[in-house]
Amino acid sequence: MADKSNRPQLIVDGKRLDGRDLNQLRPLKIEASVLKNADGSAYLEWGNNKVLAAVYGPKEAMPKHVQDPVKAIIKCKYSMAPFSSMGEHSRSGPNRRAIEISKVTREAFESVTMLHDYPASEIDIFIEILQSDGGTRAAGITAAAVAMASAGIHMKDLIYAVSFGKVGEDLILDLNMIEDNYSDCDMPTAVSPRNNDLVLVQMDGSLTREQLHKGLQMVLDAGKTISQVQKEALQRVYEGRENGNGV
């Protein structure tokens, strides 16, 4: 978080710097099955974020000693392109932040993937942030969920993620980069929508119990829209379906 003494005024008359209402999502677009080689993939644009996610597998887990004879393991790699941020070129290769995000993302997917359907195998999830503007881990998870579905992986649910935060006493949804830098709190959250279980929770800053409750409610409300965009992305790939499948 940046020095708050020179914080720009993030909210004016109930509107945010980019003109959004406090509980408004940035525009979200997802396209499924965009890469030829991957078993499943998705491209996502969320505000100024641009994210590519791909899934390979299930395939034989390698090296052999990592194999679990009764279930699949998930490997996940989140990385940010060195050209992804407005401003200077960054170093490529995983840093501590990327390694942590990869881990919590993997765990979010472990909670809904039917790992026992794929003994001794591995499922690889790759998330590439091509352009970043705050909320990239949420964008990565939302894209990867579509990639997982388009790979035909057995899952209990199609998860989504979004963050909420706090500026002064105002709660805001789906923080962009500048809001993320100067907010009093940021809470990326991933949700399994069939029962609203939280499969990823991270938070830093300060929140009262009531603010937490209200923030999560904002997440769940926005989740309906996000889930819909995810489903429509998959529908478009298979659209034109007609009666009679000829099989």
Binding site: A149, M155, N243, G244
Partner: peptide, 12 residues
Amino acid sequence: MPRQLVIPGEMI
């Protein structure tokens, strides 16, 4: 034959 696209987690 009526059929519908379903995604993981959709109630049947």
